[in-house]
């Protein structure tokens, strides 16, 4: 009985040793060299795998960092400057300063501003609603309110405001990964330069129709009257396709355009209340409905 056990142990032991030797040599032969710095960089990255950097995931991005000659064009929007600096330190390079961005919704079509003209009872998916028809309101550019962006956000930085039917972006949680930008079939989300105290001034409209139809569909639509362009002393505002756009890199937050806008389509967010003396009457421009 004992005899059998000994023979078994010895046979299996020899077999294991033989296999181990073969495996050792095969492993040596097919050894893949992997830069140890990839793992080091990966350890620094936030491991969100959101794709905000433009790569498939954090490991993919780490490989790109290790391979890159210069850091230009490589940026982790989630970690921002501190993480990029650490990654650069590992590589012995310097990370260029990239302005942090934040997502903003280019539509302010709440039910008060933009009355509903039909009821959509199909699949709650913006892509399908956009493909199907103009939408529940008369604006063929505005938010459809079916939460595609909220579902796309991996950071819980968005939620739907049930009263307005528009998504809300939480500035402190948004890392500008751009997933919502890709998810929106109407291209209503823009990544804008983040300013001090999360201050923002932007045209919250995407309607490219002429003034008349735009105004008929929504009270706060941009009618491309170009009053803001004239008011801006810094050449930050341009009008393309019947739509004003404020360049965040040129804007100095003087807030002149906000008061000029006859339809209140320019929003100022996170500013202290204006002093009564500075406040000017908001002019109402009569719009010719035939235009």
């Amino acid at each position: 009985m004992g005899h059998t056990i000994i023979i078994t142990v010895i046979t299996l032991g020899l077999l294991a040793l033989f296999a181990a030797v073969i495996l050792y040599f095969i492993a040596q032969k097919f050894k893949v060299f992997e830069d140890p710095r990839i793992d080091e960089v990966l350890a620094v990255l936030p491991a969100a795998n959101c794709g905000g950097c433009g790569f498939a995931g954090c490991r993919n991005f780490a490989e790109a960092i290790v391979k890159a000659e210069i850091f230009e064009g490589l940026n982790c929007p989630v970690g921002g400057a501190p993480i990029m600096e650490e990654a650069a330190k590992i590589m012995g390079k310097v990370a260029p300063v990239v302005d942090p961005l934040v997502a903003v919704l280019l539509c302010n079509g709440t039910p008060e501003h933009r009355p509903h003209t039909s009821v959509y009872d199909g699949v709650p998916d913006c892509r399908i609603a956009h493909n199907l028809y103009i939408g529940e309101t008369d604006c063929s550019y505005g938010c459809l309110g079916k939460s595609d962006c909220v579902r796309a956000c991996p950071f819980g930085a968005m939620y739907m405001n049930t009263r307005t039917g528009l998504p809300v972006i939480l500035d402190d949680k948004c890392v500008a990964c751009g997933n919502c930008v890709k998810a929106c079939p109407r291209n209503l989300i823009e990544l804008r330069k983040k300013a001090k105290k999360d201050r923002k001034i932007y045209v919250a409209c995407s309607n490219c129709d002429k003034g008349g139809p735009a105004r008929r569909a929504c009270k706060v639509a941009c009618i491309a009257c170009s009053k803001c362009v004239k008011a801006c002393k810094f050449d930050a505002i341009t009008i393309v396709n019947n739509l004003a756009y404020i360049d965040a890199t040129k804007c100095t937050f003087c807030r002149k355009c906000v008061t000029e806008c006859p339809t209140n389509s320019i929003l100022e967010i996170n500013f202290p209340p204006r002093k009564p003396a500075v406040e000017t009457e908001v002019e109402v421009v009569k719009v010719n409905p035939d235009v």
């Binding site: 199909g122 699949v123 399908i128 493909n131």
Partner: peptide
Amino acid sequence: RPLLDYIRLGKA
């Protein structure tokens, strides 16, 4: 299930 809704989207 909204089969055709999604197929239309995919087709487009």
